[in-house]
């Protein structure tokens, strides 16, 4: 689904922050991306959702060599990749419902065709009572779940989550993890970037460990 071959990344003329990354995110797989702070997890995630250009190496996303993609091709590929940002990035003037429905709205879909799906998904992430609430009145965990719902609404092939449990307490973190596992069982590949060992220990899953710019894989 996504393949990295000898990928390296440096910012400007600085040293390589990521070196010789070679791995594959397979269809319907579940993995954690981990490593100490500053190891390059977020940079790797940004390369995975086509927001960062590698300095060298080959990246293939959904069967397309990204070096051959044009700017116009990007949206259609991004639509198959759901992203949950560490800082949620919800639009403050929109309700939970409108935020979650946003990816469908920007695709030009008519509301009647997706309204029930959005409501069902919001209930599935446990925000049924907060469907008309604005982000300013949501707690950190609720915002996180709204962001996850937004990433999932168009049934992406792969979900990338950057520290999705970084702002929530342990019980909610476990609940979110169950949510990701359920999603994975329904066919979506999941990559969770986290440095929460406790969270990773709860699941037998592949671990991609970044350290000193290099990647070690524990299947």
């Amino acid at each position: 689904m996504i393949r990295f071959e000898n990928v390296g990344l440096r910012y400007d003329m600085g040293p390589e922050v990521l070196r010789d990354l070679t791995f594959e995110i397979r269809r319907q797989s579940f993995q954690f991306l981990t490593g100490p702070s500053g190891a390059g997890k977020t940079s790797l995630l940004r390369m995975l959702f086509l927001a960062l250009k590698p300095t060298r190496g080959l990246i293939t996303v959904l069967g397309r060599d990204v070096a051959t993609l044009t700017r116009r091709d990007l949206p259609s590929i991004r639509r198959r990749i759901g992203v949950v940002f560490q800082d949620f990035r919800l639009l403050d003037h929109m309700t939970t419902y409108e935020n979650v429905a946003l990816p469908l709205r920007v695709r030009g879909k008519e509301e009647a065709t997706y309204r029930q799906d959005v409501v069902d998904l919001i209930k599935w992430v446990g925000l049924g009572e907060r469907i008309n609430a604005l982000p300013v009145v949501l707690s950190g965990g609720e915002k996180q779940r709204a962001a996850i719902a937004r990433a999932l609404i168009d049934q992406p092939d792969i979900l990338l989550a950057d520290e999705p449990t970084g702002n929530v307490d342990a019980p909610l973190a476990r609940r979110l993890l169950r949510l990701f596992l359920e999603l994975n069982r329904s066919g979506t590949a999941v990559v969770i970037a986290t440095h929460d060992l406790g969270l990773m220990d709860q699941v037998e899953a592949r671990r991609l460990v970044l350290s000193d710019g290099r990647l070690t894989i524990y299947d």
């Binding site: 116009r72 929109m94 920007v106 509301e111």
Partner: peptide, 28 residues
């Protein structure tokens, strides 16, 4: 490019039509 452009136009037209149909939708 042409196909992407056509999809782009289609989505814009649909979005515009939806905004007419849903006058109370919160503006983006």
């Amino acid at each position: 490019d042409l196909a992407a452009h056509l999809v782009d136009i289609r989505e814009r037209v649909l979005g515009w039509a939806n905004s007419l149909r849903q006058p109370r939708a919160t503006p983006i």
